[in-house]
Design a protein around this nucleic acid. Sequence first.
DNA 1: CTAGACCCGTGATCCAGGTCTAGAGTCAAG
DNA 2: CTTGACTCTAGACCTGGATCACGGGTCTAG
Lengths: 140, 140
Amino acid sequence: MNTQHISLTIGAVAKRVGVAIDTIRYYEREGLLPEPVRRASGYRSYGEGTIAQLRFIRRAKDLGFTLEEIRELLVLSADRQRGVKAVKQRAQQRLAAIELRITELQRVRDGLAQLVESCPGHGKPEECPILRALSDEVLS
Amino acid sequence: MNTQHISLTIGAVAKRVGVAIDTIRYYEREGLLPEPVRRASGYRSYGEGTIAQLRFIRRAKDLGFTLEEIRELLVLSADRQRGVKAVKQRAQQRLAAIELRITELQRVRDGLAQLVESCPGHGKPEECPILRALSDEVLS
DNA sequence: CTAGACCCGTGATCCAGGTCTAGAGTCAAG
DNA sequence: CTTGACTCTAGACCTGGATCACGGGTCTAG
């Protein structure tokens, strides 16, 4: 077992994870990262655990979780009793929200696509279906 | 032809269109609405044209255009020469952006759906596929 | 005439998720 | 020892699209 404790500066961590230094400090302020050990100089000193946690945060963000939700996920992931159940639940909620958003966007896309298709691209403005849709009373 | 000029207060316009008074003043500041005629008291006085324009703005917003883009659409809609062509172009760009966004979200949804599906909803955190995906090195 | 509803402009505030600044201290290479 | 890169804190600022607060003026029904 390798229990060697490496010590990384905030800049090194930032580079490894591909995130800005300011973002790391911001996450710390927001409670997404624990307060790190400090060197005598006051410099933050990080170990591998922080790298993992930062990656966790970034992946969760990529999956559409807000920082607020991620904060919660981090707590849950440490709960050996109810953690997994709650995590799955949060993931399902997120999934439902994403699906809703997709559906909304698809409706918008379909509406817009139909307008684009029906517009000849020339002629008088008052005959342009796009402008008409934007101006007229009813837009289905 | 009915050229009767009605005169609406900002509050009446807001109610008709279903938008807040502050929003109307905000759009005016932002150049999306022309500066209206004023009564002797300084009150804004609006006609039907404003109603139409406000609805235009709202519909365009519903189609995913930003206020910046809408400002442009408003200019283009008044251009009798090149207006229609340019409007169609903007609509196509918007459409492409929405489609890109949908694709992104679908990828996220698929990833998340797979994780949710493979998670039993109980057991040890280190065996939860969701937590593993968030923590582990590679997430396809 | 008065109460209550409405309107005025200016500027501040909100949301999330950072990003940037200033001024000062620290570290490592040469 | 110096130079340049790095880090520290606190707080200001940014994006977009509003929304709210303030102190004051106006309008209208009774």
